[in-house]
């Protein structure tokens, strides 16, 4: 297992990130039909994604369905294997980084204590055959962190912390509502005191009123336990409420990355504008139609230039010829639109 330091991946020494993702790629092969299935192409689900997650920060990851948000975070946590790229992570908080991409399955196991995930679907992410107590205690059992009385105590503590009664331990997941189940999922993710938590659409499957409760719970826990989140979402209202910075993804790439207020007030990339303009406004008198919906890019067959160019009202020949990279566009603001100044 190689140990890296901040200089190995060009991080900010003043504000060392907890997680630094560099050129992360995840391609899924497209194979031909027939007996011998040749690889005839790739679906570039995640294509050269780079970003930093700072300490005690909530980074939002937004974009339309199929843009690669979930694949990005699942690849970082090695639920999927990397195609290429790096994800440098500082599990101890002492400036010694490891690279998620190059660890073996055995080396990954101890890191699971520091990096955890909350799933989207509170119904399929809990094993229906295990009690709530069993589900929440499982991480501690796997890593041998507690046993007997101490284990019980720790499970009770975390259940109370996420707003569940310790008596629920003996019940099975099917007895709970969606919001309560999501709290169980949160308890399971946080019981080992991780540093870094991925919330993969953690509130998308819940009712609006329950969403608010769970989001506030996540926010409280973040402050209390010193967590950093990557918060995958497609609901911009939720993102605006909870995130410190937001990264906008389109067709497997990050097209804009900025602090939340900056992004919502001064979006630079035309796709970000489209996305913000598509959000419904709860006012019956205002009719907002998206200016140019267009077709979603096909990740298996991306255009040569900017993936958004076919839908973009401002696209030029240069946009279609060469793929634009993320470039600084003001304080802490990155955008991948070459015409953003105009």
């Amino acid at each position: 297992m190689n140990i890296y330091n901040i200089n190995d991946f060009n991080g900010s020494a003043a504000n060392p990130p907890l997680l630094a993702v560099r050129d992360l790629c995840k391609y899924f092969p497209i194979r031909s039909q027939g007996l011998i299935r040749r690889r005839i192409g790739d679906v570039k689900a995640v294509d050269h994604v780079s970003f930093d997650l700072r300490r005690n920060e909530t980074l939002g990851l937004v974009g339309e369905s199929g843009c690669g948000k979930s694949t990005t975070v699942r690849t970082i946590l090695r639920a999927l294997d990397f195609t290429s790229g790096h994800a440098y992570f500082d599990p101890e908080g002492d400036g010694r980084y490891i690279d998620f991409g190059e660890l073996t399955a055995r080396e990954l196991v101890p890191l699971r204590r520091a990096a955890q995930m909350i799933f989207q679907d509170p119904f399929s992410s809990l094993n229906p055959r295990m009690t709530v107590g069993g589900i929440v205690a499982e991480p501690l059992v796997i890593h041998g962190l507690a046993r007997g009385k101490a284990l019980e105590k720790r499970v009770d503590e975390i259940l109370v912390k996420v707003g569940l009664r310790p008596e629920y331990k003996t019940r099975y997941p099917h007895a709970f509502s969606g919001g309560q189940r999501q709290r169980i999922g949160i308890a399971r993710a946080l019981v080992m005191n991780p540093k870094f938590v991925v919330a993969d659409e953690a509130v998308s499957a819940l009712d609006v009123s329950v969403q608010a409760q769970v989001i506030n719970l996540l926010d409280d826990l973040k402050r209390e336990m010193g967590l950093s989140y990557i918060f995958v979402a497609h609901d911009l209202g939720v993102v605006r409420h909870i995130c410190d910075r937001v990264a906008v993804m389109y067709a497997g790439r990050i097209v804009e990355l900025a602090p939340t207020e900056e992004l919502f007030e001064r979006p630079l990339h035309p796709y970000t504008r489209l996305l913000l303009g598509s959000a419904p406004i709860p006012d019956p008198d205002r009719r907002t139609l998206p200016p140019n919906p267009g077709e979603v890019a096909d990740a298996g067959n991306l255009p040569a230039g900017c993936a958004f160019a076919p839908r973009c009202p401002h696209a030029t020949a240069a946009c279609r010829a060469e793929r634009p990279e993320l470039r600084p566009a003001g304080t802490d603001h990155l955008s991948a639109c070459p015409r953003m100044g105009e």
């Binding site: 639920a79 990954l108 995930m117 809990l126 796997i142």
Partner: peptide
């Protein structure tokens, strides 16, 4: 591919 199997893997289960 069920979420709870993925969840178990991400918890570090063998």
């Amino acid at each position: 591919e069920e979420d709870y199997a993925v969840a178990a893997r991400l918890l570090g289960a063998s």
